[in-house]
Amino acid sequence: MTGSGNIHGFTLLQYGLVSYFDELAQSFLITMELYIVGLVLGFSIGLTFAIMRQYGGRIFSRIATAYIEVIRGTPLITQVLIIYALPVAINMSGIASLPLDWYYYYLDSQGRIAITLNWPILSSMIGLGINSAAYQAEYLRGAFASITTGQLQAATSIGMTRWQSIRHVVLPQGLRRAIPAWSNEAAYLPKYTVVAIWVGVMEFLNMAKTVVAKTFLSVEVYLIVALTFFVLITLVSRFLEYIHNRTKIPGV
């Protein structure tokens, strides 16, 4: 309590940052929204491509391989930018006129508009999903590949069709086996949601930047952001580890 600078810093932290708590929390919801939709979308697309690549015959497996390698060989940022710019380009070219200024929102406790979905958010979700799908597909395929041909032959021998044996033998075993590797992807995906900044989404980090612009508490704010992501990722990965241990089947 000797230097006034200390006290000043302390009050700024106390009142300066706390007053932005609401906005930061709201933007964190957007981050979570991006994460969860991206993960689910990524899983659906990823599972499809994993099955295509492993069991789809030559053409489908080529397509799936190409998809996975192109996505993994290019940055998430440009993938999102491409998706974001696509309808804009279509509109500019005059081929069609796609509506892009729609949005969904709710009013927060102070009556402010909190946007939950618009084109920038949606394109970020799609980008995250498409990107994550390529990585998830690889983990899933790895797990499918580790299921012995004996299992498939056994399924065929009792008269199952190809699709039935995938559905009832490969998937139940493979998905369980994929959990450890898949968990890695699932737990670290939150990091990549900050990509939405590039298309102007007010997610957590973007909001933090505006708070920095207003309070000049840059180090403190970014440390809070870093810590938040770190805690989130640690929690998710612990949680998935717990799930994995709970769903173990002897010998699988």
């Binding site: 670290y188 180090v219 992501f229 990722i233």
Partner: peptide
Amino acid sequence: RGIPVLVLMLLFLV
């Protein structure tokens, strides 16, 4: 591994 690389960049920048 648990912090977005952009957040790291911003932190080091400031």
